[in-house]
Design a binder for these strands. Structure first.
Lengths: 128, 128
DNA sequence: ATTGACCTTCCCACCGTGGGAGACTTTAGA
DNA sequence: TCTAAAGTCTCCCACGGTGGGAAGGTCAAT
């Protein structure tokens, strides 16, 4: 299987597959005589793993850990859970920040007439 | 006032002040004979505006709009409000995404023993 | 044999921020 | 007055994650 088919099958773009290889997130693909990367079913599986982890917001660094744990049949499930717990906390923190921004903006917007006049509590709020 | 003092006074790093100038977010600072940027109180005010907008999650592009509206005494408050409403929506969308990630992770974590055994529903979940 | 689709590597872009090098200017202290 | 330190200047590079595109090689079908 060439990189295009692998991309199709895994949902990870060819561009990103090369990138993941270059940063060591996935092992180097074997090559055909002409230098084309070739992939097996198991590689597609790994790419799918990475894709799902990305969609859950894990950073490359965390995904590297997770892939390592996944491959390591002697891992402790507690180690996996620890990575996930850290990620949950980091998501919670981001959510809290965004909620605070949203609340502040809502309050500013609430006080703004939103008509054709120029005076605007939003700008005043940002200015002070 | 040199850039260091302006940074101190505004809470925006000297590095970022230069950057904001380079992308046209703030006007070019006037220069001393030796080429040092010099700032007035009003510039500090603008930098504070930008800083507060950043902290509310606005992108540079949006901040450019807001600064323009701030400066334009003939603006309509409705235009300002429109920018803010778009930003609120984008925050809401991000929050929704993060909440979904968090819920998925919590569910995976809930099902994981988190002990010294290797079997782990988290990895299984990511693998399929 | 040609063509078109695919693959390769390499560089550049985004956004926002920080680090640092090498050169110059200003300020403070001896 | 001379020197050392601190401040500033312009550049380039890095991060994370993704995409665009150029220039060249390869494969399959016509």
């Amino acid at each position: 299987m060439n990189i295009g088919e692998a991309a199709e099958a895994s949902g990870v773009s060819a561009k990103m597959i090369r990138h993941y290889e270059s940063i060591g997130l996935i092992p180097k693909a074997s090559r055909s005589l002409s230098g084309y990367r070739t992939y097996q079913e198991s590689d597609i599986h790994t790419l799918g793993f990475v894709r799902r982890a990305r969609r859950l917001g894990f950073s490359m660094k965390e995904i590297k850990k997770l892939v390592g744990l996944w491959r390591n049949k002697a891992r402790k499930s507690a180690d996996v859970k620890a990575v996930v717990d850290v990620q949950i906390e980091s998501l919670e923190q981001k959510i809290t920040e965004l909620e605070a921004m949203k609340a502040a903006l809502k309050e500013l917007a609430r006080r703004c007439h939103g008509d054709s006049r120029p005076d605007c509590p939003i700008l005043e709020g940002l200015a002070t």
